[in-house]
Every structure is written in C-alpha cells, then in structure tokens.
Design a protein around this nucleic acid. Sequence first.
RNA 1: GGUCUCGUGGCCGAGUGGCUAGGCACUGGUCUGCAAAACCAGCUACAGCGGUUCGAAUCCGCUCGAGACCUCCA
Length: 488
Amino acid sequence: MKSGLHVYNTLTGKKEKFEPLSPPRVGLYVCGPTVYSNAHLGNCRTFLSFDLIARYLRYDGFKVRYVRNITDVGHITTDVDEGIDRIGQQAKLEQMEPMEIVQKYTTDFHNIMASMNILPPDIEPTATGHMIEQIEMIKTILANGFAYESDGNIYFDVDAYKKDHNYGELSGRNVDELFENTRALDGQSEKRFFADFALWKKATPEHIMQWPSPWGMGFPGWHLECSAMSTKYLGEQFDIHGGGMDLKFPHHESEVAQNTACTGHGPARYWLHTNMLTFEGSKMSKSLGNSILPNELFTGNHPLLKRGFHPMVVRFFMMQAHYRSTLDFSNEALEASEKGYQRLMAGLKVLPTLITSTSSDIDVEAYRAKFVAAMDDDFNSPVLISHLFDAVKSINSIAEGRLKITEKDKTDFIALMDGVVSEILGLTSIEETGDSGLTNGLMELILDLRARARSNKDWATSDAIRDQLDALNIVVKDGKDGASWSLK
RNA sequence: GGUCUCGUGGCCGAGUGGCUAGGCACUGGUCUGCAAAACCAGCUACAGCGGUUCGAAUCCGCUCGAGACCUCCA
C-alpha cells in the first residue's frame, strides 16, 4: 500500500494524509436517506460523492467495507414534544402502512442509485432492524451518567457531557453561544438543558411505529441509530464517517457525543462532508420547493427543465464539481456537461481503433501519475476530468495522424483510460446499454449503402440517409477511413 | 442576531504566493461534395478598496454581495 491519498477532515479543518486504522481495510459509514418520500437530486449528490470516494479507495487498493443506513423510523419533524412523525404522517396521507411507505421509497431510492451507477453499499442496515442495539446503547450512556430519564423519555445530558468533553468539536460550535442565539426554546420542559437531545421518545397510543423498552413504549432518537449501527458493523472506532454538510450539526455532533459517552472517543477518525446542490443559488430542498426528482430530470418532465438528461450525463455533471463545493444546477450547465461527456466517451471509443507506430508521443505513465495525483488530493474529480480531456485531445490527434503511439502504449493507455473512467468515475457508455448485435449489423448495412451512393456522387440519397438517421437520433460522422455512427 | 463558507472570463467549474486547469459557447483556419465530428489558432478572468511581498486570484484588513448551519434536511 503506497497510497498518497489526502482527505479534508472536518474534525481538524485540514487536509490530512489518509492512514486507516488497519490497512488495507477501510471502514466507511455514510448517513443514508430517510425513506418517507422520493429522494431528490440534492440527496443523490451526496451518495454520488461517496460512491466516487468508495470507488477510488478500492481503485487505490483498499479493502472497503461501506455501510450506509436506511432511516425507516418515523422521527419527529420538530424537536418540540408535539412533533409529527414524518413516516406516520406520509402513511396517513397515502393511506398506507408505515412499512409500506418505507418499502415504497426504499425501492425508489435503490432504483435511482442503480440508474446513476451508484454502487450499493456492502451493508445497508435499517434503524427498525436495530432496536436492541439502540436500546443497549442508551443503557450504556445512562450507566455512564450522560443521560437522564424524564417522563418515559431519555435525553442526552449535554450539560454533564460538556464538563469533560467538547460538545461542538466537530461543527465548531460553542454550546453557550448557541444558547444565546437559539431561535425556538418552547416546549422543552422535559429537558434539563436546551441542547439536550432525545435518545428515546415516549410514544403516544396513536403513534403507529413504537417498540417496547425498559422505559416504556416508544421509539429511538434520530441521532442514535447511526451510532448504534456504525459501532455494530465497523467497530467502536473506524476510518471514515460521511454525510451531507447539513448533517454536521446537530446530527453528527450528537453522534460523536453518544459514542464518546459510551467509549470515551468519537466513532470515526476522518469526517467527510459533502456540499449542497443549489438551484439558482439556493440549496435544493423540499421546503423551498425548488427540488427536482431524478426521474423528472431524466425524462425532462418538470416545469423548470427544458428537456431530459441521461443519468450518465447527470453523473458526469456532478463529477465536474468538487464534492466540497456547492454545485449550481441549471439547464445550461447540464447541456454543456452533456457535450463534454459525449466528447470524452467518443475519445474513449476512438482509442482502440488507433493505428500504431514504432514511436510514441504518449507518456502513459505521466498520465497515470496525473490522474492519481488529482484523486489523491481529496478526490478532486474535476481535475481528473480535465486531465482526461487532455488525453482525449492526444487520442484524437493520433487519429488525425499528428501524433504517434506504439502498440504497447496503446494497450496500456486503453487499460488506464477504461479503468479510470469506468472504475473511478463510474461512467458507462450510453450506447452500450442498447441492443448491439442486430443494430450494429443493420447500421453497417445502411452505411455501406450510403457509401455506395457517395461513390456515385449521389448526394441526394446519401444526405437522405443521413437526415433520416438523424431523425432517429443517430449521428453519422464521415472520417478518412469511412463513416461511423453514434447515438445522440 | 451568532458561527462558518464563498464571490474566478459569456456560462459551468478547478486552482491557495511566481509556471495562463478543463468543459460549453463564440471567432478564424484545416479537413469535407455539403454538414457533423476532429484538429490547429484566438478569446488571458479572478467582487471592490487598501496592506504584506521582489512577486497575490492565492496571505492580512475593511467594504459590498451571496449562501449554509443555528429547527427536519444529503
């Protein structure tokens, strides 16, 4: 393992050399979705970012165990006592069982992930499947003196915790300052301290999702499930914990506190946070009404969209921005990415057809070094892609006869380019998804007929073929060695 | 209000002290029956003001603007 990977660690606010606890193994935990409605595009960006991260770790030779949870307990919508259970609420709205809601939106989530070629995690645990672990954790926190019971509810005792620990070490917050500036302080009579958060909530009889516990019927607090499940599958301390930036506080901060209350230290050594997808400068979110669903983007069936974009184009678009930067969504940006994606994939397709020479203008190892350096620098996919475009330019120049490549370099270059594009970036060719055998045969026939027309200078026939293929979204390109075709 | 982040060419988006990322768009050229694609060339920006420095998009200060979190959120 000679990894030169550096990652930006939210805990320290710096880029650090990545050194796993027990190489080559890497434990990676990412906070997954709450399955009470369709995942929107903003949600997807986070999981896409961690897909890139997991893919690169594996490419780099690490043996990754990737755990990403499904939150299927209906947590309350606000922190006040009269909050509404989101899954329960949606269940009433759609006249379904809560678990039907969970199943429906979990399936939808999986379908979207698959369409964007986001690989599934190695373990995808659910909160409802880990009630015992969560209850056990609460017992430990209580026994260690960092929680208290209040009328069937268990709250984490932030005041007690902050005597010896820093509640705010991850998010950079000062609890006392927070108190001065907290907006809503109503309805928190059961808590001793404003910042205390629920580990267990007492359920009212009409609350559908509830479980027995030593403290009566109820349900676990939101922050708890991740602590319990990451500990179960990755151990008391593991390498990377990730999630969206909006989870930093209070969710991740509370996770750190819960784990520390149990074991004396936080769960992860490196915390990675992905930035938001914005639309016209504002965070894409359901509450703002500016969220777009992946399927709406793929089909173009949305008032804000001019047309649809293939999932691979969307993937490429998101990869062109760094995961820690906000990315602004627009039709124009998508269109630009679509062209860029096509250019990249076309270059990849040309590469195996290159005619080789006895000398080479291509330094494959130099390209490899550039690609690796970009990704080693906190997974900088935009820089990686810029190097890929340089490579495409070289490939096209060889095809034009301006540059040369040897047989060996060509073989190595193909392996390198395919590996980077498909394994790290997870980009696949759109054309390959169609039926190939028959189509290729038919196209060969059509282009052969057109070539005959052209050799007879029968431009009318040749142009008619090209125009009619164009109407079928097939582009004909006339090159030196005959015509080729591709889908639009 | 508090904490933090950001402001890059027509658009998107990298870059953290010197070596003009890249994509899209645009302009000129090569190639082509025409077109598309491709290639070559051009377009040389860092919100404003001041400071540090031999040298700043990059460091510091101020001003203006935008966003995130502080409440469920990827």
